[in-house]
């Protein structure tokens, strides 16, 4: 049971994430890569800004990872998240999970990204041509 959780201000490195979760007893690796989309509800997005409450975010991701290990027979879990300004196409998050068999890797990876979006104190602001908005802040 190994976990690597990091919050970076510099671009994330996909290959190094995959390398870290790889192990001889793994039969597969599932990787989720979040990317900055160029539009929200038809409006052009110019860039995103991510902010994190770092200590608590790592704490919360740790809980999610522990829960994943409890629910599925996975071997390694990696979560890297970006903060700062990201342009369209850049990568805010990478989640990589290795397991002996693919079902566990797929399911744990999905659980981790879905739960991260609900509980981890990280925020994004979308910048449009006519203004900016903190995502999900208002009903």
């Amino acid at each position: 049971m190994q976990t690597q959780i990091e919050i970076h201000t510099e671009p994330l490195n996909i290959q190094s994430c995959i390398d870290w979760v790889m192990s001889p007893d793994s039969g597969g690796i599932d990787v989720f890569i979040g990317t900055v989309r160029n539009a929200t509800k038809g409006k052009t997005v110019l860039k995103l800004e991510f902010e994190a409450y770092n200590k608590m975010a790592i704490n919360e991701i740790n809980k999610i990872s522990k829960q994943a290990f409890k629910q599925w027979p996975v071997q390694k879990v990696l979560v890297h998240h970006r903060t700062g300004t990201l342009q369209v196409g850049e990568i805010p998050v990478i989640i990589a999970v290795s397991a002996a068999h693919r079902d566990a890797a797929f399911e744990a990876c999905r659980y981790i990204i879905d739960t991260l979006k609900q509980t981890v104190p990280i925020w994004k602001k979308e910048f449009f041509e006519d203004g900016e908005v903190w995502v999900a802040a208002h009903p």
Partner: peptide
């Protein structure tokens, strides 16, 4: 103590 508005990471 910290105020945590609706989160939107990922």
């Amino acid at each position: 103590v910290a105020i945590i508005p609706p989160v939107s990471g990922g």
